[in-house]
Design a protein around this nucleic acid. Structure first.
Lengths: 127, 127
DNA sequence: TTAATAACGATAATGATTATCATTATCGGA
DNA sequence: TCCGATAATGATAATCATTATCGTTATTAA
């Protein structure tokens, strides 16, 4: 039961690192990277704070189906693309996506709160 | 390295079961269900054959982010809905989805081969 | 009927993530 | 500034879905 958050250098460094990249890294990648500045940092700390950042709305997790969760400090709804060639995750522009939630709700007897749109294929370099 | 498939009652039963339901079950659920007819069936056999069915295009796996893979014998592209209330997965009708792959490809320098559209919210009963 | 081998059941291994726990760091108030 | 409460840490064990291994059984074609 978490009440009042306290500051921690590790969490700040994690968030700053996540904000600085566009690569949608995994916990493992962030861990390896953070070790350069904090050699004693624990993988558990990375997972703990990624979860905390997700819960507080400062980051989102992206499941592209490759077995490990990817993270993103851009929390506004947007679509992702997974390149089967280089296995990288990137943001893409999909204008139709803005209308698809309401389209889904209109044609089914459901309440749509959010959606997860992932596209697969080959990126500019791999195609 | 699998060359020539041989028949097996377990695989047939698994596929028949998967075809008979619209619930997008998990491996565990299928295993429990199949045990009634095949008390000695192994969970490994279920996973093995689900993988085989996926590889041969007779089924697809759906990752809704709840920690376990769901399976579906309907292999034609279609959208899924995950109800946060009853934790069930269902097919939904989303007309716009038919155009979204080309929309994604048109607005980005990528080749889109497939996509995975999952919607979250509350179903007719839970809302 | 038989030989080759795919599939099986049982179970150990894997790998990402989470939980536990003793220690350390943070922070508001005395 | 020091103190007490407790959040956060690092180390590591536990969890849990899935995959790999392996000896045995079932299927198939000759």
């Amino acid at each position: 039961m978490q009440r009042v958050l306290k500051h921690s250098k590790q969490r700040d460094a994690l968030y700053a690192l996540l904000c600085s990249v566009k690569t949608h890294p995994t916990a493992e990648w962030l861990y390896t990277e953070l070790k350069q500045e904090y050699p004693n940092i624990s993988l558990a700390t990375v997972y703990r704070n990624l979860k905390l950042l997700s819960e507080t709305g400062k980051a989102i997790s992206i499941d592209v189906g490759d077995g490990t969760e990817h993270y993103d400090a851009t929390v506004e709804p947007h679509c992702h693309f997974y390149c089967k060639g280089c296995r990288c995750v990137s943001d893409i522009e999909v204008p139709l996506a803005k209308e698809i939630n309401s389209d889904a709700q209109r044609h089914n007897n459901i309440r749509v709160e959010s959606s997860n749109l992932i596209f697969y294929g080959l990126c500019a370099y791999c195609k």
